[in-house]
Simulated scan of single mutants.
Amino acid sequence: MSKTKPGVEPSPEATETLLTHLIELRDRILRMFIAILVMFLILFPFANPIYTWLAGPLMQHLPEGTSMIAIDVAAPFLIPFKLTLLLAVVLSIPYLLYQVWSFVAPGLYSHEKSMALPLVASSTALFYLGMAFAYFVVFPLIFAFFTATAPEGVAVMTDISRYLSFVIMLFIAFGIAFEVPVATILLVSMGATTPAKLSQKRPYVIVGVFLVGMVLTPPDIISQTLLALPMWLLFEIGLILSRIMERKKAQRRATAGGDDAADADDGPDDDGPGGGGGTPRGGPGGSGKASGTTRAASSTAAASAGGGASAAARTGYTPLTDDEMDAELDRIEEEQAELRRQRGSASTLATDAPADPAPEADESQSGERLADDGQPDADASQEDGNTGRDR
């Protein structure tokens, strides 16, 4: 919780920084709106041809003598207008993502930037690929199936507004479905799961993609299968890419682990009180023992790090189980407790050592007190001598 008092106002620097970010965010949003508006103005004169091109997969399979209809009065104008606006947004996505990236990138680390930029670019390309797959592969198949199964005496004449809603739903469904590789790589990179666990859950993934296809597509087996199969294939692609990424990460960790082990072996020899492996100063029960224990713990940690690095280099990175993690934590706590006990014994010996000269000080003080007490006796004897001479 913040310890700032309610009455304390933020500093001028913090206020200026916040205002700067808000102004930059406003400018980015304005640029995004301007880009969409410019794209819309370019496409609006071609609104009707664009809608005709979009309705092409259905028009090719309509029976002869039938066509699409407009039920609402303003539908012949509003539906092409709506389609053009949506198309302007879709085509402006690269520029919109660039503006978002320009606003967020200064606050990211270098490794986050190196990971975020390829993911954003690949997710955009996969979204466009999903929409293209829906238009060129899925639409002809499902519209041919729908028009062929119409009962006799039923004229298939689809409303233009309902057709637009239908194809937009499919575009979004397939665009999101094609993001499966990106989602898989993100889950593995964040440590939420591993490629081995995902491969074990493959049967559940297959059932899940068919359920998603059933929910996102119309109630027919063709569109459901055409959505589920690409999702399964993309899941396998994402699994392969995540394994490659984990293998490279394990190699980097193995290299870094070897360097850390070498540093751990050299550290205690340089910093130890007795030099490179000599007998430590301070006696067996003093700080030398603690230093020897520290050196032993460091060498053990270095050996385990070196063994783990070599094992990781051979078999790849495998995370610790819960039991192994608990055992490692217990070992570290025992080592720390042993070091604390040794340091406590050393401090106790150091505290008790200067207590021996105290009796000598007491004897000197008592001698001074005796000398002081004996002074009146000397004065008394001198007065007795003077009295004898007078007599």
Rank of each mutant, 00 (worst) to 15 (best):
P354C: 13
P76L: 13
I50M: 15
G307P: 00
M39N: 00
F77S: 09
F103S: 13
Q375C: 03
D379L: 14
T158R: 07
L229C: 01
M190S: 14
I222H: 02
S364T: 07
T321M: 06
I42E: 08
G130R: 01
S11V: 03
G276Y: 13
A88Y: 02
A196M: 03
Y204G: 10
S299R: 15
G344K: 15
R391S: 09
A121Y: 07
L233F: 06
P45G: 06
N386H: 13
E335P: 00
P12E: 13
G213D: 12
V38E: 01
L239P: 02
R26V: 06
L96V: 10
S2N: 14
R331W: 03
G292R: 15
K113Q: 08
D356T: 14
L25T: 08
T225Y: 04
E64Y: 07
V100A: 11
V180R: 02
A132T: 02
H111V: 03
L43V: 13
L22F: 10
Y128C: 07
P230F: 08
D27N: 15
D362N: 10
N386W: 12
L126Q: 04
P118T: 09
F127Y: 10
G374E: 02
T294M: 14
G385W: 06
P57E: 11
V120K: 05
P181R: 07
A14P: 00
K197I: 05
R389W: 04
A35S: 13
T351H: 13
D260Y: 09
T294C: 14
L83C: 06
M131L: 10
P106E: 09
I36E: 04
T84N: 03
I69N: 08
G238C: 03
E24M: 11
G283L: 06
V73C: 03
K248I: 02
F40V: 12
S67Y: 07
A301Q: 05
S287I: 15
V100R: 04
F136V: 11
I42M: 10
A296V: 09
I244T: 05
I160R: 13
T279F: 04
A116K: 02
N48I: 12
S123W: 07
G285L: 15
D159R: 14
